[in-house]
Design a protein around this nucleic acid. Structure first.
Length: 668
RNA sequence: GCCGAUGUAGCUCAGUCGGUAGAGCGCGUCCUUGGUAAGGACGAGGUCACCAGUUCAAUCCUGGUCAUCGGCUCCA
């Protein structure tokens, strides 16, 4: 075999074998340098016996892939510790994750914070004991016998394909069904921490056992662990729920209801600026704004298919009072009521979960010709969905939200250009806001599934177009077969929040279904009736969620165009109040969002206030400034600009605002 | 929805092993008239989430409800 080193060199070895033996014989130091290898696109550890012709590429401890190995080992060490302390615990699964690891246990009593400490201490003991990891290949029969008393492992075992080798890993008194990879011994990594206890369903299925999950992380260097923990701490300070309160951007009130956002004046500024921004782009792209109501007849949503199919995630329908009274007198049960509403026997109104049926109706409100297409109808539409109670939180998951929604009705051959336009819009938005850290997910149909509506040829074309469009964005994207909606393929834009949770923002979806359900038509060149295709698209997704993500992205320090207060005027002493008042009036007359802070407080104090409110510009007026007819300019970054006259200041702030600059200082 | 934790002043939190509560910040008034992240004094502010139960007595114990947080699951 040929062993490839990261520096490009290689070592020829006669025959096969485990890398730990080959490297160990070559130079024992190598065993400390490398943690695993890549072999045929798979991670294999140093224990794995490789065949003669193999060409493994060694993975150094410093490699970005290395943590996967030692964190996986840490999860085993944790399981070992848990088994020692809680012999009754049943093991489920315990993988390494992006920045840590976890293990799921079935225990009679949930773990407590104290248990976590004890487990961690036991892990330290195991690490100190420096136990060797051992890889065991066993026959299926042996494996079944070994795992007799481990129901979860049995289930996993039964699902391993016949032709696959079954492996166990052992370290000291602990043995676990595991594919690996693992490091050589438990003493190789010392810097780890258990972070939290959570619950997780076995195999993510809510109908199955609720397991107890322990999360942890580990690093090769103490400083790395400390830096990670510091990062978590920092991230918590950027949490939009915290900043939302500190900066008074929004309010969630128990009495109003969970997941229903009250936007404060400050937050409303941010929202409206975003809306203005996007509306400008929409006008440029030939969209037309429309407005539709918050509720509509059940019949509309039966036709669209939203009701009753998605009934579980909708607010219950509204039924006329007299109707309801008579149903009550009849003694109609809830189940019956639901049934009769679904069938159309009882009519009512639904709080809209989607805007599209309304837009479809606008399309259908007059005869359309191919000359009218594409017809692009846009609306900042408030929709309501009954999200599960355990899911609601902050602005990222709410029950009432505003979509920057639009529906494009077009001919099949117009799809490529329309999708390009949508992507350009998304790109413009992300670029303007400096959000480079997003990924793109293309949901394609599963070729083996028949749930999809529409002509397969149309799908092929739409999928090709989506793929090409995503390519042109120049952003990493993944294709996920089976993730398409039943009515068409889609592109989703996904960003991470400060604690690493992923949130879907924008989405672009091709839809063959709604035009069908509503019998939409246009007259073609040939004078015949044809069916249009629809594109649903919402580059922000939900304005609520988007603002939430944006608060974290900027850590509350919005660029000038979004900042609720753009500049605060600070007179140093009372005798400067009149001058400062003049400056303040001028700023406001110039259309800037300005504030005047002449509170009976020291300048230091008021600067601190402005700083905490993350106001971009502090305009300070004292004796010198009054005399010279200028003002001192302090940025929230702490930097000072040259003192300037009010017109110059107005001009500068306006320019930063109008160009939607991310910086406070003009780029000269 | 499920598992766990939490709920005390506007905010962040302390406290009471059952005898109706405290700090800092913020807020108000006054003094101070200040030069780039906290000047000083005084004062107001709480049905200890809500509803039951146990008890002479519940913010504290028990049960339920609601909400928040960490996860799991779902998301047209």
């Amino acid at each position: 075999m040929e062993i490839l080193f990261p520096d490009g060199s290689s070592h020829q070895h006669e025959g096969g074998g485990a890398l730990k033996d080959i490297l160990g014989a070559l130079d024992r130091k190598l065993l400390r340098q490398f943690v695993a290898a890549r072999h045929q696109d798979e991670m294999v550890d140093l224990h794995t016996v490789l065949p003669a012709g193999a060409r493994p590429e060694l993975i150094a401890w410093e490699s970005p892939d290395a943590p996967l190995v030692y964190r996986h080992s840490l999860s085993h060490i944790m399981a070992q510790a848990v088994k020692r302390l809680f012999p009754a615990a049943q093991l489920a699964i315990g993988p390494a994750t992006e920045d840590g690891f976890y293990y799921d246990f079935d225990v009679p009593e949930p773990f407590t914070a104290d248990d976590l400490q004890r487990i961690e201490a036991e892990m330290k003991r195991i690490v100190k004991q420096n136990q060797r990891f051992e890889r065991l290949e066993v026959s299926r029969q042996e494996a079944l016998e070994m795992m007799e008393d481990a129901p979860y492992k049995m289930e996993l075992l039964r699902e391993i394909p016949e032709n696959e080798i079954i492996t166990f890993y052992r370290d000291g008194d602990f043995i676990d069904l595991c594919r690996g990879p693992h490091m050589l011994n438990t003493g190789q990594i010392r810097h780890f921490k258990l972070l939290s206890i959570a619950a997780a369903y076995w195999r993510g299925d809510e109908n199955r056992t609720m397991l107890q999950r322990i999360y942890g992380t580990g690093f090769t260097q103490r400083q790395e662990l400390e830096a990670y923990l510091r990062r978590l701490e920092e991230a918590r300070k950027r949490d939009h729920r915290l900043l939302g309160r500190q900066l008074q951007l929004f309010h969630l009130d128990d009495q109003v209801g969970p997941g229903l956002v009250l936007w404060t004046p400050n937050g409303t500024v941010v929202r409206q600026e975003l809306q203005t921004f996007i509306m400008g782009e929409l006008v440029r792209q030939g969209y037309q704004q429309v407005v539709t109501p918050h509720i509509g007849k059940l019949d509309l949503f039966r036709t669209s298919g939203h009701f009753p199919y998605y009934q579980d995630s909708q607010f219950p329908p509204v039924i006329q009072r007299e109707h309801l009274t008579s149903l009550a007198q009849e003694g109609v049960s809830c189940a019956e009521l639901t049934q009769r509403m679904a069938e159309g026997d009882i009519e009512g109104f639904l709080l809209k979960p989607m805007n599209c049926p309304f837009h479809v109706k606008l399309y259908a409100s007059q005869p359309r010709s191919y000359r009218d297409l594409p017809l692009r109808l846009a609306e900042f539409g408030a929709v309501y969905r009954w999200e599960q109670s355990g899911e609601i939180g902050g602005l990222t998951r709410v029950r009432g939200f505003t979509q920057d929604d639009a529906h494009i009705f077009c001919m099949e051959e117009q799809l490529p250009a329309e999708l390009d336009g949508c992507l350009e819009l998304v790109n413009t938005i992300f670029r303007t806001l400096g959000m480079q850290d997003y990924r793109v997910r293309i949901g394609l149909r599963d070729p083996h599934d028949s749930k999809y509506v529409g002509d397969p040829q149309h799908w092929d074309r739409a999928e090709t177009v989506l793929r090409q469009a995503a390519h042109s964005l120049g952003v990493p994207f993944v294709e996920e077969p089976g993730e398409a909606a039943f009515y068409g393929p889609k592109i989703d834009f996904v960003v991470k929040d400060v604690v690493g949770r992923e949130w879907q923002l924008g989405t672009i979806q091709v839809d063959y279904s709604l035009p069908e359900r509503f019998g939409l038509e246009y007259t073609g060149k040939d004078g015949q009736a044809h069916r249009p295709v629809m594109v649903h698209r919402a580059p922000f997704g939900s304005l609520e969620r988007f603002v939430g993500v944006l608060i974290e992205h900027f850590a509350g320090a919005f660029p000038v165009w979004l900042a609720p207060v753009q500049a605060v005027v600070l007179p140093i002493a009372d005798r400067h109040a009149e001058y400062a008042g003049g400056v303040y009036d001028r700023l406001r007359a110039a259309g800037l969002r300005a504030a005047l802070n002449d509170d009976n407080q020291t300048l230091n104090y008021r600067i601190r206030q402005a700083q905490r409110e993350k106001i971009p510009y502090m305009l300070i007026c004292g004796d010198r400034e009054v005399e010279e007819g200028r003002m001192a300019i302090r940025l929230r970054t702490g930097e000072n600009l040259e003192p300037a006259q009010v017109e110059e200041v107005v001009e500068m702030i306006r320019r930063q605002r109008d160009t939607r600059a991310l910086e406070l200082k003009p780029q000269s």
